[in-house]
């Protein structure tokens, strides 16, 4: 497989999941699209290195998160997450109300907890990979996930689990 083919395969398989992870982690949709597209472009610019990364999608999301947090972009267009999620869910009449409640509860989590949940859910990363992507200690990731699930169970679904 040529580098072009392997990158195309990677892009096709992961572009939407990476974007969903960033949006679920609390990034405004428009800013997330820009950040993820930029991160994939950087991935291609360094494909010989990134393709050997144990979790290239985690590399992309980390790059996108770093790209997004610049203060210039924050001042320009960051949208409050709660408002963004509320707006995006309001239009989906087909969604069951329990799902809306869950989305709002996720949106209300502290930033790091949201990021951990997003990476575990959408990228299917294990604790070590999540820790690397977010530059956290593995124990901190475990603690954030535990606290997030405890909060979500208490506020929305007592039977909530993260199934494989």
């Amino acid at each position: 497989m040529t580098p072009e083919e392997s990158f195309a395969e990677f892009y096709s398989a992961h572009k939407d999941r990476c974007l969903r992870a960033l949006v679920a982690a609390g990034t405004d949709r428009a800013a997330a699209e820009e950040a993820v597209a930029e991160a994939f472009a950087r991935a291609w610019a360094s494909w010989p290195k990134v393709s050997r990364h144990p979790a290239p999608s985690a590399w992309v999301v980390r790059t996108a998160l770093n790209h997004h947090v610049s203060r210039w972009r924050r001042t320009r267009r960051e949208v409050a997450l709660s408002a963004d999620v509320a707006a995006s869910t309001a239009g989906r009449a087909a969604d069951p109300p329990e799902r809306d409640d869950l989305l709002r509860a996720v949106a209300a989590l502290p930033e790091r907890q949201r990021q951990v949940v997003a990476l575990r859910v959408f990228l299917d990363l294990d604790t070590r990979q999540t820790a690397e992507a977010l530059d956290l200690a593995p124990g901190t990731v475990t603690a954030h996930l535990h606290r997030a699930l405890t909060t979500l169970r208490a506020t929305t679904a007592p039977d909530l689990e993260v199934c494989s």
Partner: peptide, 27 residues
């Protein structure tokens, strides 16, 4: 209630529209 199932369904319409060739050119 599976968090992965619920969130995946909720964000099913969130998709990156940038075509591959645009990302490659940017790279």
């Amino acid at each position: 209630t599976d968090l992965r199932t619920e969130l995946s369904a909720a964000y099913a319409d969130v998709a990156l529209a940038d075509p591959l060739d645009a990302v490659v050119r940017r790279g």
